[in-house]
Design a protein around this nucleic acid. Structure first.
Lengths: 355, 355
DNA sequence: ATCGTTCTTGTAATCGTTTACAGACCAGAC
DNA sequence: GTCTGGTCTGTAAACGATTACAAGAACGAT
């Protein structure tokens, strides 16, 4: 036997479908009516069909969060924050994953027109013309967690990577490190580009030259490990298992060897890369932070789980999630409001991977 | 202007809605018809409404995966495997998160009757009568990744925790460890109960007594850290910063001190707990694996990311995800098949946290 | 008793699709 | 020329809810 419909309930209660619908939605009705309907509903175990309902009322009370890589712990922070806000507002949150390809994201955004959800929260890793276009034309409200051109005319919440980079460099310099290397993710991604620029600016602010720069093929642990040898080689540290050990708190020598020299600190574009690098540093016989200080970005749960715990730039992922969710709810409420562009300020979570 | 409907397309193409629907669904039509419809669709940017479609055909072509804790890396392994299988079959996967409370899970299962998806894949952390009942009565096919009574009459895919425990103990014993401690998660959970039983059996098989047992309040990193002091105290290792150091490969002394003695190995009910414990061991001045060997369970991405990399019991999360997804697809195909109960065999991923 | 309010309930249209059914058309066979 | 059979297309009825509108009931005021 198939599941009961509102017509079945109406029949069982001896009333009309309209009445059933009304009591179910809390519209005024006599006490007796409420009671009869309630009984029939309980008896049949009736549950209204969300598809039919949303077809009629034009809302699904679902929101979609699209993330590129479920394996990246920064998303769990963000997801938790988003979930909290939207569920408090009476929405269900469903998460879908796009691949690293921008075409998947475009397909997803276009697909929103099918009416899966009332809004979309997307954190694109790569952005191109197509994606911007699809977002602008999207049938449902979209907010982007990340950097997208203003002309897209869409609400955005983004991090301040350059400022975050500066915090990291400030900290390292204050601890006496001068030969700072940088491991980026793919530079053709939004965060990759931002962090690359930020790193250059931050070093310039301190009148330093980068000690070494490398680019991983992905924002993943494996890519971080794979890229580390290049970085070590560029820094003249490759295979230096016999690298001189210094006492923990003794400041690094101040002789600044510009680019190409050995480095005493490395900043990584996210925590996964940083943890990957730390593994390779250990394998090369280098100690963190004594020989090389390591700074990650995102301040994800992984940062405190790693060993040594990772000093990491907190780019406000929880706050970004929260603000983005709020923007989305506000836009669903009023689609004519002018798009906001929120920038969340970073902070530095200092842990033991830096002196 | 609102988004176009099939009627708008029909008007623009000068044909009937039925014809539009037919060409869109690839039913036979003349070449000219196909071409006219196609043109109108492209011109208007028409995208069919999934709600209306699924209301009529009774299928959404969506599958739901419900996980308890997005922060647990074991789920990313599983999620990836599930995603692969279901997307190959032409379904969208949406992920929702339940809390640690069984009432949330019951609500979710009941809610499936609203027609959000064609099937549900759930990995419940706690199971009670209500949950079993709600699963049995669920309107859409459900498969459970985890252990649920056979009388629930539902497809399940589960791990073999006792066997996995045995692999861990075998390995530790082979390396000369005899005083083995155990950090469990909450014992009132499905995995907690299974692992507790498995640990006891595995020790018995080797005629050993547990060196110490503790129970964390959750399967999380924080809970692992919080529970570690108890474990160390129970093992007489509390605050033993001056603990005697042994050479790395030298076997532990064979004097077996039964329960209450210091331990030289600890098995943790999942990887997060294990990493939490490793942090506390380090804080207590103990070295892994020289002083204490550590074994995790799940063999999640975190196991290889941790430092030292964590020896972990692979409970087959990827395979479980894959098999569970296949069962779900098969049941959607034919809801009358008799429920299968698949058990996935474990293996041991040996890394550097054990000698 | 009649009228006009107000409150409650039922009838039927609607949301955007799919699809059963019937009608139109055409070709070939007699 | 008529009939048969086969395509192809259009009309209209679902799917399961919400809701505008109308009708009926109750009740007090005149």
């Amino acid at each position: 036997m198939s599941r009961p419909t509102i017509a079945g309930v109406a029949r069982a209660a001896g009333v009309s479908v309209a009445s059933v619908s009304r009591v179910l939605n809390g519209l005024p009705a006599t006490e007796e009516m409420v009671e009869r309907v309630q009984r029939a509903v309980d008896e049949l175990g009736y549950v209204p069909d969300a598809r039919a309902r949303s077809l009629k009322v034009g809302r699904t009370f679902q929101l979609t969060l699209a993330v590129a890589d479920v394996g990246n712990p920064v998303y769990v922070t963000m997801m938790r924050a988003v979930e909290e806000v939207v569920s408090a507002a009476g929405y269900r949150l469903v998460v879908t994953t796009t691949g690293p390809d921008v075409v998947d994201e475009v397909a997803l955004v276009r697909g929103m027109a099918r009416g899966y959800a009332d809004g979309l929260l997307i954190s694109p890793i790569r952005v191109d013309e197509d994606l911007v276009k699809s977002i602008r034309e999207c049938e449902v409200p979209v907010v982007v967690a990340g950097n997208v051109p203003a002309k897209a005319g869409v609400d955005t919440v983004r991090a301040n990577s350059p400022k975050g980079m500066l915090l990291a460099v400030d900290h390292l310099v204050a601890k006496g490190r001068r030969r700072i290397a940088f491991l980026n993710g793919p530079a053709d991604t939004v965060p990759g580009a931002a962090r690359s620029k930020g790193f250059a600016e931050a070093l310039k602010a301190h009148e330093l030259q980068p000690a070494a720069v490398a680019e991983a093929t992905d924002f993943t642990f494996a890519a971080g490990r794979a890229a580390a040898p290049d970085l070590l080689a560029a820094g003249g540290l490759a295979g230096s298992r016999s690298h001189r050990r210094r006492g923990g708190d003794e400041p690094a020598p101040t002789t600044i060897r510009p680019t190409g020299g050995a480095f005493d600190a490395v900043i990584c574009a996210n925590d996964l890369l940083a943890v990957g690098v730390m593994h390779e540093l250990a394998a090369a016989g280098l100690e963190v932070p004594a020989d090389v200080a390591v700074v990650g970005m995102d301040d994800s749960e992984l940062a405190e789980q790693s060993f040594p715990p990772l000093t990491s730039v907190n780019l406000g992922s929880a706050e970004r999630g929260r603000r983005a969710a709020e923007l989305l709810l506000a836009r669903i409420e009023d689609n004519d409001r002018t798009p906001r562009r929120i920038v969340v300020q970073p902070s530095l979570s200092i842990r033991r991977s830096t002196p």
